[in-house]
């Protein structure tokens, strides 16, 4: 196959001109990107305590039922995992932001895999607010936006001030159409 550089409008289109004009006319209007609450990093790091307990239990069980070198290698891997997660929290926070486009809400997150999910407002099916015990201490909640697609396609925005999350929910709710939307 000839190596064709992936230029969008040049070739392979039916009515190239019209679409290219359209693409030109649509500029990505995102006025502002919003950051998460900085306490979320602490929350994520405190969640690691749970991992620590889990790994400790497994290590004790391993110590009882198997050889010591297996336990040691498991311990090394577990520690590495916890340290990795501890460091990663900061990077994930740095990369996370959400924004409101003209007709969509978009959320970007990730460290190694940077991932941005865009949901058009009419596609929102329902909205959850979720709050864990550690998050409650910091008065944070996460906003979960569901669509009709697979469960993996929904957006979860962590680290919002609870009042702000509720405000956001009522704001987004106004976009959900009351009539039956054809999927």
């Amino acid at each position: 196959m000839e190596q064709k550089e992936s230029t969008l409008p040049e070739d392979g289109l039916h009515n190239t001109e019209a679409i290219y004009d359209q693409i030109q006319s649509v500029t990505d209007i995102v006025s502002e990107r919003y950051r998460l609450d900085s306490h979320i990093v602490t929350v994520w790091r405190l969640h690691l305590l749970l991992y620590f307990v889990l790994y400790a239990v497994i290590a004790i069980i391993l110590l009882i039922i198997s050889k010591s070198y297996i336990t040691i290698s498991f311990g090394i891997i577990a520690c590495a995992d916890i340290i990795f997660r501890f460091i990663r929290a900061q990077f994930v926070y740095d990369n996370s932001s959400f924004a409101f486009g003209q007709e969509d809400i978009r959320f970007r997150t990730g460290y190694i895999f940077l991932r941005e999910v865009l949901v058009p407002y009419p596609r929102i099916q329902h909205i959850d607010i979720h709050q864990g015990p550690i998050e409650r201490y910091f008065n944070l909640s996460s906003l979960i936006i569901h669509t009709a697609g697979q469960s993996g396609d929904s957006i979860k925005i962590p680290g919002l001030q609870t009042e702000y999350a509720e405000h956001l929910r009522t704001y987004l709710k106004s976009f959900i159409k009351s009539e039956e939307e054809d999927t």
Binding site: F113, E116, V117, R123, T147, D153
Partner: peptide
């Protein structure tokens, strides 16, 4: 009209 969600992904190497 049937688009539900658009996902835009980049791994560290892809970036």
């Amino acid at each position: 009209t049937k688009i539900q969600v658009l996902t835009h992904e980049q791994s560290i190497v892809e970036r």
